[in-house]
Design a protein around this nucleic acid. Sequence first.
DNA 1: TGCGGGGGCTAACTAATGTTAATGTGAGGC
DNA 2: GCCTCACATTAACATTAGTTAGCCCCCGCA
Lengths: 245, 245
Amino acid sequence: MPDEQVMSVVRRLSSRHPLTHGDVDALCDIPYVTRTHDASAYLVREGEPSRDVCSFVLSGLALGQKSTSAGARQIISIHMAGDFLDTQHLFLERADHNVQALTRLETIDFSRRALKRVLLERPGIVQAMWIDALIDASICREWIVNVGARRGISRVAHLLCELAVRFERAGLIRDGVFEVPLTQEQIGDAVGLTPVHVNRSLKLLAAEGLIQRDRRKVSLSSWTRLREVADFSALYLHETTAPAE
Amino acid sequence: MPDEQVMSVVRRLSSRHPLTHGDVDALCDIPYVTRTHDASAYLVREGEPSRDVCSFVLSGLALGQKSTSAGARQIISIHMAGDFLDTQHLFLERADHNVQALTRLETIDFSRRALKRVLLERPGIVQAMWIDALIDASICREWIVNVGARRGISRVAHLLCELAVRFERAGLIRDGVFEVPLTQEQIGDAVGLTPVHVNRSLKLLAAEGLIQRDRRKVSLSSWTRLREVADFSALYLHETTAPAE
DNA sequence: TGCGGGGGCTAACTAATGTTAATGTGAGGC
DNA sequence: GCCTCACATTAACATTAGTTAGCCCCCGCA
């Protein structure tokens, strides 16, 4: 009988591509452990050999990030409950970015070797997992657009829109309110702005009545107008089940 | 006997992961046609269903790009001889970005359905192709850093470094000189700057003696110093065979 | 309860980049 | 061989975003 933790992995993969009973059984046979990481612990370091595990987030948030020689940090991905952490390194020998826990983080760590073996034997799992990795890459492309082609306030708004949609899907929103557990400096690192300018932008979004804030809790007062400012379209998230408007 | 065009695909995939004779035979059995696209022709359009072919570039350059509602265009990838064009949409139902020929472009177009079937039957090909897609995604991450965390002149320098390494690998460099077939406006669209600022930056790089320019022909006068300005490290390209320094 | 520190907030100033617009220049068409 | 057009170049000016710095507030901790 599969345990509940592995079932959340199965649910995720099934949402990407249908799995057979055999697929599910094979997944359940992969050796794994669950782990807890403290906030700000590093799971993966740029330049080091890929880990011998592949992690799936059960709770908490993690960040992907790289640094420049000038000391600037760029956040390149945000991972939440229900996301894999290592799909981008699954078949690469060396990590090209860091992965760091943002909050206390619970993960399932599968044996990478066993996972790869199962993948290569099972077309359904290959497709599900590959699709998952492709969607990560699609998000990455949208981030290039966000950071390269939009002005400050839109970048911040776009990040909020993306988090709202993804948190909603992950069940992290209660009564329209969600917590963005990023400091304003970290938001800046994600969208390519300084903390001061992030502050200005958030203040402006609130003043325009698009969002409401209380410390790090955010609620979206006008989804329509926020989307507009953010130039947000959920197409790039490739959700098969359309999220509520 | 496999023809020369398909062999260039085999070479590419073999460089990612070893293929068996059976893998090669299977690849050669996939139905394909070769096509020529005029400069600036669209191959893929954002929002449309994925094409029923998967293309591999034989010659010419292609761009991946998205637009914002404000009318700005962001180039998100550059594809040259030896690159696949569709790995990012292979298992997705809808295109999330445009793919456009930058120059006259020759491609091999494989039947997507047949390619997927062969992939799912052959672990070696899955790995080779998946690795190829993962490296595309790694480049994408570095582009986020470039556009989000570096100042103008470094962004331009970084793009030149990347093109130099990739062109070298694709055999497009003669006597240290290569042609960047992008207008300065297009360079700007790739690195998130206006054409005026790209011009300023190129002029400055030339004045500092890091590059030499003659129209769109570029040669790197000081690879070491250019790398330094660009904050360039080739790690993210995941080349297994290290390129000459 | 007092302290210490991190993060939020704001202001004043600076620097980087964008905008607009005018001019130059080379390549291809007729 | 000239015209035309797209692109490159440059300058002057406008705007956005970065920098520096100080204060405040909340929270955890002694």
